[in-house]
Each structure stands twice: as structure tokens, then as C-alpha cells.
Computed example of a mutant assay.
Amino acid sequence: MLRIGIIGTGGIANAHVQGYLAFPEHCEIVALADVAPGRAAQKAEEFGISAAGYDDPAQMIAEADLDLVSIATPPSTHAQLTIAALDAGIHVLVEKPMAPSLEECEAMLAAQERSGKLLSVVAQNRFRDDLATLKEVVDSGLLGSISHVRVDSAWWRGLPYYDLWWRGTWEKEGGGCTLNHAIHHIDLLLWLLGSPAEVTAMLANAQHDNSEVEDLSVAVFRYERGLAQLTSSVVHHGEEQEIVIQGQHARVSQPWKVLAESSDAAGFPARGGDAERVAAIEAIVANREPLAHRGHEGQIEDLLAAIRDGRKPIADGRAGRDAIEVVTAIYKAGIEREFVSLPLSASDPYYRAGRLVEHAPHFFEKTASLAEAAS
């Protein structure tokens, strides 16, 4: 029975609590911590669990005899808490984004390596049936070489969203929608296609004049032959998120749609298209066994199994680090107005912690700093 601790008791902590509670035969939540006095105990009471409440995360790490800790705190705290837990011999599941800088990510990976424990970064969308299906189709080879990918990480947030004390600042949040919202889709892009060779981007704050950070970015990625484009946004009404993958032989997308053209003698689309290929792709979808657990619950199931089996988790620390590398390249490209080659070198100034805070534009200044988000 694994003993679980959770640091941070804000909204996202609920997904962690519910995820662990789904596997009572494998784990037990024994401790919660939050720097706001009394909030950890309050969260335990809310879920009816007999877990000790701590106002000091460091004290919890030192005293609670934990096997695994979830870190669900603001991004600027992830590295320090993760390293402390790993060095104490505790496995870690840390919320996205892994950390605001590659330097911090590498320090977290170094702690994981020397501790011999597991480090997993939240990538709950890998544990969705529709996206796992998309991955299986891409891996099948039925699409052929990839020509173009369009990713819309489209979210919408009103002005009060940035009133919470740590949001809307480069120092505490680490960035805007590119880091904190599109990180999900960046992870999926890397999961589906691997890392691009080159990135360029533009950043803007279109609608949130109470925030330093961007609320909109558009990036273009170069792969071996094809291109991908990513829109990161918290200004899109309807939050219509989409991934469209155009291959040599067919197109698939999430929400699900499949199309496959065939050529007539003159090179134009032939009537009816490639029905046989469409049928082969749809057969993959029809024959796929649905996931037993999804989202955070699915990732927690995988991590618990990885600890038991002595293997890497599906979404490990390296995957979390690679997503931050792409975010860093987007920010560098947008701020410096240049094309950025990947991988980034450790000698690159944007690799280092603090560089982004020093050089990022303040689109506007933060006008409110609430201790808790309005309910």
C-alpha cells in the first residue's frame, strides 16, 4: 500500500485526490500540505479522508513517511518541491508545466536520477480515448508521411482569472497561455510527431489588460518535410480545440474525422476518394479497447503500476522537460523575433532560470492580487 501526500490544495488538487481514491487497493492519501494555514486540513475534511494536514510542505516531506507525492502548486514552486521530495526518497507526480525554465527541469531530472525514484509530469490528455486513438492511427503508418498539423489550443478566460495572486506574472506563473494552457497540446504534438527542428512565433495580449503575460500566441514548427502550427489562446469563445493531421495518404483529426483523397489522371481529387484507406483507418478506431481509467485517474493508475513494476511511467520527466523546451523556443522566437533551432543548447540564455522574466515584455501590469480565486 503506497502512502500518498499532496502538496497544494487548490482546484486542480481535487483531480489528484479523486485519482488516488479510485485505487484504494494500491494507495492511501495520508498527508496534505498547503502554505495557506488550515487549507490542507479543510481539503481532507472536504473529501472525508483521514489525512494529516500540514501548513509547511517541507515538514510534510520530512515527517509523513511518504512513498509518492503529488505537487499541485504554482509553476514557480515545482522545481524546489520536486527536488526536495526526490532527495527524500519519494516518487513525484508534478502538475504541468514541469517548471518555467529548462535549467529547472534539468535539475529535477538530475534529482530523479540520483534518487532512483520515479518522476512523472501531468499529461492527462494522453489518457483520453479519442487522443489515444489518434496516436494509434498515426503510429499505424496509414497516413504516410506527415505534411501539416494544425493544433488549436483554444481556451477562454475572463479578466477575473488573472486576479489570483500568482497568475498573470512572468515570475510566478512563468508565462501565459503558451506555458499554462497549450502545454497540454504541445505534449500531445511531441507524443504524436516527435520534436520539431525549428520554431518561429508571435506573442500578443489581445484582451487581458490586467496581466503581464501573453493571452495569445501563434507558432509554426518545421519538421523534416512538413510543417505544424499551434495557436495558444485564452481569448477563443467556445473553446473549440482541435488537432488536424494531414498525411501523404489521409487526414485524421480530433474531434474525430477521417478523409482520404485519391488522384485522377490529371492529379485532381478523384470522385469517392480512397475508400479502402478510410475503411482501414476506421477499423483501427472500431477495434480499439477503451481505456479503463481516463485523465488524471488514468495517469495515476499508470504511475502506481510503474512504481510496482519498476518501469518508467508513460508521461515521465523527460517528456515534461521536452514540452518546456518547445515552450521556451516559442517564447524566445516571439521575444527575439527570430527562428529558433531545436534542441536548445545549455549555453542558450533562454535555457537559464530568470532569463524569461528579465526579457519578456510586460504587455500590461497586474492590477489585482487575490489570495484565493473567486468561487
Rank of each mutant, 00 (worst) to 15 (best):
G10E: 02
Y20K: 08
H16S: 12
G10L: 00
H16Y: 15
G8Q: 00
P24E: 06
L2I: 07
R3P: 04
R3E: 09
P24R: 10
I4R: 02
C27R: 11
A33V: 11
M1V: 11
L21Y: 07
F23N: 06
H26E: 15
G19A: 08
Q18S: 12
M1K: 10
V17D: 00
E25S: 12
A31P: 09
V30F: 11
A15H: 15
Y20M: 14
E28R: 10
L2V: 05
R3D: 06
A22I: 09
N14K: 12
T9K: 00
I12S: 07
L21I: 12
G10T: 01
A13P: 03
E25A: 14
T9M: 02
G8S: 02
L21F: 08
T9S: 02
C27E: 05
I7P: 01
H26V: 13
I29P: 04
A15L: 13
G5Q: 04
G11F: 02
L32T: 05
G10H: 03
I29D: 03
I7W: 03
Q18F: 10
R3A: 08
I29K: 03
G8T: 00
L32D: 03
G8F: 01
A33K: 08
H16A: 14
M1R: 13
A31S: 14
R3S: 10
V35Q: 06
L32M: 10
V17F: 02
G19L: 14
G19S: 13
F23Y: 13
L2K: 14
C27M: 09
A31W: 05
G11R: 05
C27D: 06
F23H: 13
F23K: 12
M1W: 05
T9R: 01
L2Y: 15
E28N: 13
V17C: 03
Y20G: 09
G5R: 05
H26R: 14
V35N: 02
E28V: 06
E28H: 07
N14W: 05
C27S: 15
A22R: 14
G10W: 00
V35R: 11
I4T: 09
V17P: 02
E28C: 13
G19K: 06
H26K: 14
C27Y: 06
Q18T: 11
Y20A: 10
A13C: 08
A15P: 04
T9N: 01
T9E: 00
P24S: 10
A15F: 15
E28G: 04
V35E: 11
G10F: 00
N14L: 03
M1F: 11
G19N: 07
G8Y: 00
E28Q: 15
D34N: 15
C27W: 06
F23I: 10
I4M: 04
L21T: 09
D34F: 05
P24A: 09
E25H: 12
I6S: 02
V30L: 08
G19T: 13
A15E: 07
M1S: 12
V17Y: 01
V30Y: 12
I7V: 13
L21N: 07
H16N: 07
V17L: 04
L32A: 11
R3G: 07
G11Y: 02
L2D: 04
A31Q: 12
I12T: 13
I12Y: 06
D34W: 02
Q18G: 13
H26G: 05
Q18A: 15
Q18V: 12
L2T: 04
L32C: 07
Y20D: 09
G19V: 07
P24V: 12
E25M: 08
V30M: 08
A22S: 14
G8I: 01
Q18H: 12
I6K: 01
